[in-house]
Amino acid sequence: MSTSGSGLQVHDLDCGILSQISLTVRPGEIVCLSGPSGSGKSRLLRAIADLDPHAGEIRLDGEPQTDVPAYRWRRRVMLLPAEAPWWLERVGAHFPDGPDAAAFEALGLPADAPDWPVTRLSSGERQRAALLRAVAREPRALLLDEPTANLDATTTEQVEAWLRQRIADRGIAALWVAHDMAQIARVADAHLRITEHRLEPAPCRSSS
């Protein structure tokens, strides 16, 4: 593995039950990650975002994680958890530069949703708003933990299309945890599966 390069590079990462994990996500590329529940997918994303202590080397555009202040690393390598918390009263208050109404509509959210109290959002709306909140901070890499878990089929495809467009436009390196093989077939440029505490390349489309 080269020491310089662009995108997200993980080399020999040990975290929790996973060991010697190596992977590369190039800018603008979507790598899907699948595996049974409890196999350590979320722990892996947390380690890459530097939220859990871990061993191994992680680089973004050639720069090692340890050379960057932790908060700046997380701003560039942004983790979107399956259920992201909201702590202020209004949805829009969580967007530092103000929410982008067009983006809200593109994801099937009402244009006035930023003025809503957070409690008015359904779980699916909350998940899409959390996606917008993360992407609004212009990360270089996105770690998506089942970003469409609470969405119906139509909305899921809407979010997938919007994310693919955004990832391609901004050259974001995206690591996407997914369960649904159909979703992986729709969005993935590469697919990695966790088996026996290791990562193995898997086909993006099921051959059967």
Binding site: A49, L51, R74, R75, L79, A84, P85, W87, R133, R137
Partner: peptide, 11 residues
């Protein structure tokens, strides 16, 4: 969860 959520957003 709120503290970690805010850390994830780069605070």
């Amino acid at each position: 969860h709120v503290i970690e959520g805010r850390l994830m957003l780069g605070e």
